[in-house]
Computed example of a mutant assay.
Amino acid sequence: MASSSAGIVTGLVTAALVTIGVLAHQASVNAPADLGPARATASPAPGAVKAPRDRRHPEALPAGSGTGERVVYSVDDDRVWLVGPGNKVRRTFEVTPSTVDPVPGAYTVTSRSNRVTGSDGVPVEHVVRFASAQGVAVGFSAAVDGSTAKPDPDRRTGGIRESRADGDAMWEFATIGRPVVVVR
C-alpha cells in the first residue's frame, strides 16, 4: 500500500510540474511588453502579418516593433534599426541575410564573439548572437575583409552580414541581454 501511495504522489507531483512548465511557457510568450521581452516561439503566430512600412521612407522604424532600447531586424526588408532611448533610431542599415531566418518575435542578445570563423568559412568580427533556427545559431557579424556577399543557398548559415562600420555600431550597442525584435 505504501508503494502504491508513493506512486500516486509521484504521479501527481509530475503532473503538477508539467502544468507549471506549460503555464510558465505560455506566460513568457504572451507577456505584456512592459514586463520585458518574451522569447519567440518555434513557429510564427497564426495569421502573422508583415509590420506596416512607410514605403516613401524605407529607413523608417517598422510599426509594431516594440518600444524601448532594442535592435529591430526585418527579415523581409533585410534592414536593421538600432533604437535608443525615447524610441529614437540611432542608426539603420541594410544587411545581407543568412540562409536561415529567425522566426519573427522577441529575443535577447545571448552571446558575442570579437573574432571567429563564420559558418560559411569566412573570418568575421563583432558577432552578436540572439537566436537559433533550424539548429543554426543566428546573429549579426561583419566579414573581416569587408565583404557582404550573399551566402551559398545550399548551406545553412545564420550569419546576418553587416558592413564593418555597421558591425562596429552593432557591437557597441548590442550587449548581452539587449532586446532584439525580429519582424517580417
Rank of each mutant, 00 (worst) to 15 (best):
V127I: 11
V95P: 01
A142K: 02
S98P: 08
G68K: 00
R53M: 12
P46E: 10
L23H: 04
L82Y: 08
V80A: 10
R129G: 13
T157E: 01
V80S: 03
L23W: 11
V136Q: 13
P85N: 14
N114C: 01
G135M: 06
N114A: 15
D34R: 04
E59Q: 13
P32E: 00
A137H: 09
V103M: 03
A31P: 01
R91C: 07
G139I: 09
S147Q: 08
K150M: 12
L35Q: 11
D78K: 11
G139K: 08
V75H: 07
T108S: 13
R90V: 11
E125L: 07
A38H: 05
V122T: 12
G121T: 05
V100C: 02
V136D: 11
D145P: 10
G135W: 08
G66R: 03
G64I: 11
A137M: 09
F130H: 07
V122E: 05
V138C: 11
V72A: 01
A48Y: 15
R70A: 05
D77E: 13
G105D: 04
G86D: 11
H126V: 05
R91G: 00
A42V: 15
R156M: 13
A131G: 08
D76G: 07
T99S: 10
D145V: 02
P151G: 05
Y107G: 04
H57Q: 15
A63I: 12
L35R: 10
V72T: 02
P104C: 07
S147Y: 02
V72S: 00
G86K: 09
S141R: 03
P62W: 03
A137R: 12
A31C: 04
G84C: 06
R70L: 03
G105L: 01
